[in-house]
């Protein structure tokens, strides 16, 4: 059981949705990124999603594209991102880290090396945006042999047949992209997300994270009625870019408070108990 499994079990026991906070590794530079990450757990992030910078991030909207550029301009590489995780572990031994990025930097690092060194650095899972189920098997095996989860992704366009295929044998949690679009694009529609998450749950007992297009605490609170984890990305990255680390941590705290409120006021304990 790695830190992610422990955190998911804890959230289930506390009967609340978890807050996943995305930041780009090395944005705006290594030292600032290190300081920010060290504060995330205390500010209320249940899971840290750490972006791996890439030159051609086709699934990202303008906000996160700029973060890729800032991090690369400051010299961030895959090796330095793993060093950043190791640095985080000096002060935070429990908040799980999910590495999120694109396939090519991991490929060039060497797939086995990438997962093994990610695990050794203190990461708990990885999500590669351009690795669909058709090509995932060898990567999943490599991740598993290092004790890492390879997180599967679903989209509004995934039909039942595809969901069954994607969700066979996956671990950790499932990341559902709530909209057809790039990160930070349009606001998702609660009704559509509700239907889509219900569909995902027919194919898995794993926790479901909802991400893409979530910008405000109230919206996050509404989504927490459907999803087990709520991912905030572009909004935090933008806040960091505009207002620095203290503004970003304040924003994390705002989302965390909204989600914990949701757990107390909205969710009846039995509703959660019906799912494994």
């Amino acid at each position: 059981m790695n830190r992610l499994d422990a955190r998911l079990a804890q959230l289930r026991a506390q009967n609340r949705a978890g807050l996943v906070c995305y930041f780009m590794a090395g944005d705006p530079d290594f030292d600032a990124s290190r300081t920010l990450l060290a504060g995330l757990g205390a500010a209320g992030a249940d899971v840290i999603e750490l972006g791996l910078p890439f030159s051609d991030p086709v699934a990202d909207g303008p906000t996160i594209q700029k973060a890729h550029l800032r991090a690369r301009a400051a010299g961030q590489t895959t090796a330095r991102t793993l060093a950043l995780v190791a640095a985080l572990r000096e002060t935070d031994a429990t908040t799980p880290v999910v590495l999120m990025g694109y396939l090519n930097p991991a490929l060039q690092y060497g797939v086995q090396n990438f997962f093994a060194e990610a695990a050794a650095s203190g990461a708990d899972a990885a999500l590669l945006l351009d690795l669909p189920v058709e090509h995932a098997a060898p990567f999943r095996a490599a991740a598993r042999s290092s004790g890492l989860h390879l997180i599967a992704m679903t989209a509004p366009t995934s039909d039942d047949a595809r969901l069954a295929e994607i969700l066979r044998g996956v671990s950790g949690f499932v990341y559902h992209a709530t909209i057809n679009g790039t990160t930070g694009a349009a606001r998702c529609s609660p009704a559509e997300v509700s239907t889509a998450i219900a569909r995902v749950r027919r194919h898995t007992t794993l926790p479901v994270a909802a991400g893409f297009g979530i910008r405000e605490p109230a919206q996050a609170r509404d989504l927490a009625e459907q999803a087990d984890l709520v991912v905030i990305g572009s909004q935090l990255v933008e806040t960091l870019a505009q207002g620095g680390a203290s503004a970003a941590l304040e924003s994390v705290y705002g989302f965390a408070r909204a989600l914990r409120g949701a757990a107390q006021s909205v969710r009846a304990p039995c509703a959660r108990g019906s799912r494994p």
């Binding site: 396939l103 992704m153 366009t157 995934s158 992209a177």
Partner: peptide
């Protein structure tokens, strides 16, 4: 079937586009 010419090719795309 996966679009591979030997080891080259394939369809490495975000899930949103895979059904399309």
């Amino acid at each position: 079937a996966a679009g591979l010419f030997g080891r080259f090719g394939g369809a490495y795309m975000p899930e949103t586009l895979m059904p399309a």
